[in-house]
Nucleic acid binder design. Structure first.
Lengths: 188, 188
DNA sequence: GTACAGTAGTTCACGAGTAAACTACTTTCG
DNA sequence: CGAAAGTAGTTTACTCGTGAACTACTGTAC
C-alpha cells in the first residue's frame, strides 16, 4: 500500500479564461489521485511527459532516418564525428552517444561496413582505435542532419511561442542536473 | 551541403549575473554553429534535450523496476490496468502504453505467466480478450508505483523550483500537440 | 623488469521490440 | 443471407541493445 507525502492537487496552471492545452498525463494523474489521494504523483508531470514525448519523437525520427538506412544510434555517431574534426576513440563516441560498449561496437561495425567511417589503430595506445568520418560519411551526415532538423522543427510547431523559452530553460536545468549525477553512463 | 533558414544565435536566456546551468546540448549547438552557421539548430534545444533526458531517466527507472522483475513496458500495463478498474482489451492497453501489437502480446504473456493479470474472453467480441489485474498484480503495482515515484522525485531535485512550472507547462503543450497529430501509434 | 591492477574494446548469449504475414471473428452491404 | 472488407490479436523472423565474460594492452609498484 502506498504511503507518501500529501499531494498538491494536479490542477491547471495558466490564466483563467485561457483554456490550457490538456494531455494524457493530466488524466493519468487524476486517475491516481482518485485511487490514492495521499500519493504525490507530481514527478509524472515532468518524467511521464518526457518519456511519452520521447517515444513519439523517437518514432518520427527513426522512421525518417530509416530512409537513409540509419538507426538513431548510427546517426548519433556520425553526428558526433562531424562535430569534432579530430578522429575519436570508440570510448569517447560511446560516452557522447550515451551508449554501452557493445552497442558502440555494433554501430561502428555497421558504419565501417558501409565505408561511412574509417578505423585506424591509435598510435598512442595499442588497445585503442581511432574512428574518423570518411568523405561519404561526411556527405551523408551533411545531407541527413539538416533534413532531420526540418522534421523535428515540424514536430515542434504546435508549441505556443510563449511557453517555449520556459520549456527550454527547464529542460536545460533538468539535463544539467541529470548529467552531473554520479550515474555513470553504463557498463563496458 | 546544408541550406536552411538563418540561425538565431544559440545564446543563454536568463538574467545577466545569474549563471544559467549549462548542459551538453549547448556544446552540441555551438559545434554545429561553427560548422554550418546558416543552419537553424534550434529544434535541438527541445528535442535533443528530451531524447537525452529520456535516456537517462529510462536508465534509472529500468534499473529500479528490474529489482521487481518488471520491464518498463510491463509496468506500464500494470499501471494502466490499475488506473482503470474495468478489465481492458489488449488493444486499449496497447494504445495507452504507446506500444505495438506484438509488444503488447509479449508483455501480457509474461504478466499472465506470473499470474499478475488474468485473461478472459470478451463476451461481446469473439476475437477479443479482456485483461484484468489479479490480486497479486494489484498488490505489486501498489508497491512498485510509489517506490518508482520516489526514485523519479529524486531525479528531479536538481531543477530549481523557479523553472519547474514553465517546464511542466511547456511539456504539456508539446505532448498535447504531439498526441493530436495524425501520427498513429503504430502497426498492429 | 616483472607482477598486478586498471582500461579499451570486443565477443557471446540473450531479451525486448518491430514489421510483415497470418488467423479468426465481426461488420457492412448488395 | 452470403461475400467482401475491416478489426483484434497473435505468430514468425529479425534487429538493436544489454550484461557478463573475455582479450589485449597500459601503467604503476615493488
Amino acid at each position: 500500500m502506498p504511503t507518501e507525502s500529501p499531494a498538491p492537487v494536479p490542477a491547471p496552471v495558466l490564466a483563467p479564461e485561457i483554456e490550457a492545452a490538456t494531455d494524457v498525463i493530466n488524466g493519468v494523474r487524476a486517475a491516481w489521485a482518485g485511487l490514492h489521494p495521499e500519493l504525490d504523483t507530481a514527478p509524472i508531470d515532468v518524467i511521464g511527459r518526457i518519456l511519452r514525448a520521447s517515444a513519439l519523437v523517437t518514432r518520427a525520427g527513426d522512421e525518417f532516418l530509416a530512409r537513409y538506412g540509419l538507426t538513431r544510434g548510427e546517426f548519433d555517431i556520425l553526428a558526433a564525428l562531424r562535430r569534432q574534426p579530430e578522429p575519436q576513440s570508440p570510448g569517447s563516441l560511446r560516452t557522447v552517444a550515451l551508449a554501452t560498449g557493445p552497442a558502440t561496437t555494433k554501430r561502428l561495425r555497421s558504419l565501417e561496413a558501409r565505408m561511412l567511417v574509417d578505423r585506424s589503430p591509435n598510435p598512442a595506445d595499442g588497445r585503442g582505435a581511432l574512428i574518423s568520418l570518411s568523405a561519404s560519411g561526411t556527405a551523408l551526415i551533411d545531407e541527413v542532419f539538416p533534413a532531420l532538423l526540418a522534421v523535428e522543427r515540424e514536430l515542434l510547431t504546435g508549441i505556443p511561442s510563449g511557453v517555449r523559452p520556459g520549456l527550454v530553460d527547464g529542460l536545460r536545468a533538468l539535463l544539467a542536473s541529470l548529467e552531473s549525477h554520479p550515474e555513470a553512463p553504463t557498463t563496458d
